[in-house]
Design a protein around this nucleic acid. Structure first.
Length: 296
DNA sequence: CCGATTACCTGCACGC
DNA sequence: TGCGTGCAGGTAATCG
């Protein structure tokens, strides 16, 4: 499921119920997801209150009043749902009432806030997600975030930074954009979409949109613009809905209605004046969708 | 060092 | 209908 816009959508769904709340109970239903849970996972969380509900790239970070932070990654198929235990709901929240436990409910957090109590349930069929607990003071240097690249949102990402980051890289542009050590948070869908918007081929060597002095090029400038745009639009839309991905309130995201290249193999390219057909190729083992005619 | 491939796991769509 | 195959948003480990 989740690239940065989906994770940000999850964060925004969790924040009203988690921020300021106390974790009263944790049910850890198996010893591991992709990796083992950290030692004393349940004990380190129960009784803690949540001071901050943040996101870094595709990671969720709940900072606790214990000096530790809960770091969570949704992998490919992870999702959260919220089941309110009391009628008192917050404005704008329309969560499903409590229901039966579902298959692959691996962690259930019981949380109690000022106005509502709820179960926050982590479900992950493929178990590529994981959870960890690290000292808040060591978040930036912990194994998950040390060496991680810049966020693709905001001013950090511009033509200059892309030019600098991709300089000398012989890898395909697609692979460079997926490299979390350079830019952190992009995934397969939004890379395909940004490249389509920028009119750049995913097969082109990354270095070919850079300049030796590290200054922006027309291409690096266009690419940074379209990355920021597509990510912002997707967040605005509440993330995409791939297969069964849902927001924490059970609603489907609806950005999928606007995919221009991703999963559109064989369809006519919708770029104005372009008569190309969207093609699917495999790069580093993953599908790339692009228009060979207008993406150069 | 770098870049490319494989591994991890379940569910679903598809063709026969 | 059942069964085999391929594919899916992720990162980490391994291989040249």
């Amino acid at each position: 499921m989740p690239e940065l816009p989906e994770v940000e959508t999850v964060r925004r769904g969790l924040e009203p119920i988690m921020l300021g709340a106390t974790i009263t109970k944790v049910a850890q239903n198996r010893p591991d997801l992709r990796f083992p849970f950290p030692d004393r996972f349940v004990e380190r969380l129960e009784g803690a209150s949540i001071n901050h509900m943040g996101r870094r790239a595709k990671y969720l970070v709940a900072e606790l009043d214990t000096g530790e932070a809960l770091v969570m990654h949704l992998g490919m198929s992870g999702s959260f749902r919220i089941e309110l235990e009391e009628a008192a709901s917050l404005p704008g929240m329309f969560h499903h009432p409590r229901s039966e436990a579902k298959a692959h409910d691996h962690v259930v957090f019981g949380v109690k806030g000022g106005t509502a109590s709820a179960q926050v349930i982590y479900n992950d069929p493929r178990r590529f997600g994981f959870m960890d607990i690290v000292k808040t003071s060591e978040l930036a240097s912990c194994k998950h975030f040390a060496g991680m690249g810049i966020e693709p949102t905001g001013n950090e990402l511009n033509g200059d930074t892309i030019s600098r980051l991709f300089a000398g890289k012989s890898t395909p542009l697609k692979a460079a954009l997926l490299d979390q050590r350079l830019i952190a948070g992009l995934g397969n869908i939004y890379v395909c979409e940004a490249l389509w918007r920028a009119g750049l081929s995913p097969r082109r060597k990354a270095s070919t949109i850079t300049r030796k002095n590290g200054m922006a090029t027309e291409r690096s400038e266009a690419l940074s613009l379209h990355i920021r745009d597509v990510i912002a639009e997707a967040i605005e839309a509440g993330g995409s809905s791939l297969r069964d991905h849902r927001q924490t309130n059970g609603d489907l995201g609806y950005f999928q209605h606007r995919f221009s290249a991703y999963d559109r193999e064989g369809e006519a390219c919708s770029k104005k004046g372009c008569s190309g057909i969207i093609n699917r190729i495999v790069q580093s083992g993953r599908s790339t969708f692009y228009c060979p005619k207008c993406q150069r």
